[in-house]
Design a protein around this nucleic acid. Structure first.
Length: 118
DNA sequence: AGCCTGACCTAGG
DNA sequence: TCCTAGGCCAGGC
């Protein structure tokens, strides 16, 4: 079987899909790793979404990874951002209030791809 | 080739 | 209600 080859291609697509979904997040809104993973089938787990974000910096196209937080609305990836644009500052620039690494009113600002995208 | 780690999430005690 | 453990897949050593 070409199972292995298929998996490789699928993995590559997975990263691309993650980037595309993240780019769909409108400015001033936020989403979570789990939501994206769920939208993509959740088969590969939410951790892979975070891993994709880690590689997002290498992408030619800009990926608004700062709009992606964990399901609690915490900026867990803040430390992994390039020092030039801190995650919190980018969010605040879009009108999102961030206090103590937590997105305020996260529930209202939350953007779920499986709901917003049909 | 095997083990450890990671920008997470859910469930159980 | 807080804390711990397990599961998930991929990449690094």
């Amino acid at each position: 079987m070409t199972k292995t080859i298929k998996l490789s291609e699928k993995n590559k697509d997975f990263f691309e899909m993650v980037y595309q979904v993240v780019r769909l997040i409108p400015a001033g809104r936020v989403s979570s790793y789990g939501a994206v993973a769920k939208y993509l089938g959740a088969a590969r787990g939410a951790r892979m979404v975070g891993w994709a974000m880690n590689a997002s910096h290498a992408q030619a196209e800009y990926v608004p990874a700062h709009r992606v937080v964990n399901r609690l609305g915490m900026l867990s990836g803040k430390a992994h951002f390039p020092s030039e644009s801190p995650m919190q500052k980018s969010l605040e620039a879009e009108g999102i209030e961030v206090i103590d690494d937590q997105v305020q009113d996260f529930k209202r600002l939350f953007w779920d791809p499986s709901i917003e995208v049909s």
